[in-house]
């Protein structure tokens, strides 16, 4: 294909997206569109998979059967979400093995938030309430993104995510209505998860390298700062309802803007965690890589069994 042909195809492609048409797997697409989508969708899938680890930590210690069943179901959902997203990503011509390699080698990133530890039961409440809350804000606009397989996966993810947030809030509410000690536990969890949750929505707009292109391709419908403001505005009243305090002394309702003003975010901490120096980066990667390696014999056995059944069928047929 000549350069002129490609320019022509690109123009038609951009026009289709501008008209809100969906792009499907076998359609022609610019190489950069493909690469950007592989990066974002795989990062999203990896986050779901690694995201199971901090919560899995509490399954055996959930305080009641009701909580345990809900937490198990939530963690199973995260696995499901990871699989929907890997499936969508593979339609772009990358194999599952390559995707895993990128995660295991550290080449691909996952959400920085999962590198924080879950040290008390209240952390499970805070994750559902804040982390899933921030994730929903990020994900709802993606149900309309231009790439069909990604948009369809996101519709399914969003439908399931709302239970996650509600179960988290319910845990917080129960603790806040409990003993002084339990309420202190909820406050402590909010103190530790608030700032990482704000960071999770990504660097500020002036520092975000992908925003402009991603907005054009509808991979992003709102900027990081807009999403962050939306998150703060909807979460602060929820904290008030719980009777616990958001750990930001600069947090103040701005009547003129109809939004909360908030204090400075420690971006150094964010970049440290992204670069692998968060409290649990090593632990998470070790857990993930060893689960994969230790499961190899099971995967091999399943293939051997399938082959044997196939051979048997052939033998009876002949």
């Amino acid at each position: 294909m000549s350069e002129k042909d490609i320019k022509n195809l690109e123009a038609i492609f951009e026009e289709r997206i501008a008209q809100d048409q969906k792009i499907e797997a076998k359609d022609w697409m610019p190489e950069k569109y493909r690469k950007t989508h592989i990066r974002q969708i795989s990062q999203h899938a990896h986050s779901e998979i690694i995201g199971m680890l901090p919560e899995g930590n509490w399954i055996t210690r959930a305080p009641s059967l009701r909580r345990k069943a809900a937490l198990l179901a939530k963690v199973q959902d995260e696995a499901g979400h990871g699989l929907y997203l890997y499936g969508a990503c593979e339609t772009l011509g990358i194999s599952r093995d390559e995707l895993y390699d990128q995660l295991h080698s550290g080449k691909a990133k996952y959400s920085s938030i999962f590198n924080y530890p879950t040290i008390t039961w209240a952390d499970i409440g805070a994750i559902g309430w804040l982390v899933d809350g921030a994730a929903i804000i990020n994900q709802v606009p993606l149900c309309n993104t231009s790439y069909g397989p990604y948009a369809r996966a996101m519709v399914r993810v969003c439908k399931e995510e709302s239970f996650h947030q509600r179960q988290g809030f319910e845990i917080m509410l129960t603790l806040c209505r409990g003993t002084e000690e339990q309420k202190a536990m909820a406050q402590d969890a909010l103190n530790r998860w608030w700032w990482p949750s704000l960071m999770m929505l990504g660097p500020t707009d002036d520092k975000s390298v992908h925003t402009e292109q991603s907005m054009k391709w509808k991979l992003k419908r709102k900027t990081n700062d807009e999403l962050r403001q939306q998150f703060i505005d909807q979460t602060v009243p929820q904290a008030e309802l719980l009777g616990i305090t958001v750990p930001d002394k600069d947090l103040k309702w701005n009547k003129e803007r109809g939004s909360y003003d908030f204090g400075p975010i420690d971006w150094d901490e964010f970049w440290q965690v992204v670069k692998g120096h968060g409290p649990c980066n090593k632990e998470r990667m070790n857990a993930r890589v060893s689960a994969w390696n230790e499961g190899e014999w099971v995967r091999d056995a399943a293939v051997a069994y399938a082959q044997k059944q196939e051979d048997k069928k052939m033998a009876t047929a002949s």
Binding site: Q76, G80, G87, A88, T91, A153, R156, R299, A302, Y305
Partner: peptide
Amino acid sequence: GSLHAADAAMALENARD
């Protein structure tokens, strides 16, 4: 959607989950 499985029986089970 899609998924990976060793054989058809496992694909059905995984699809259910």
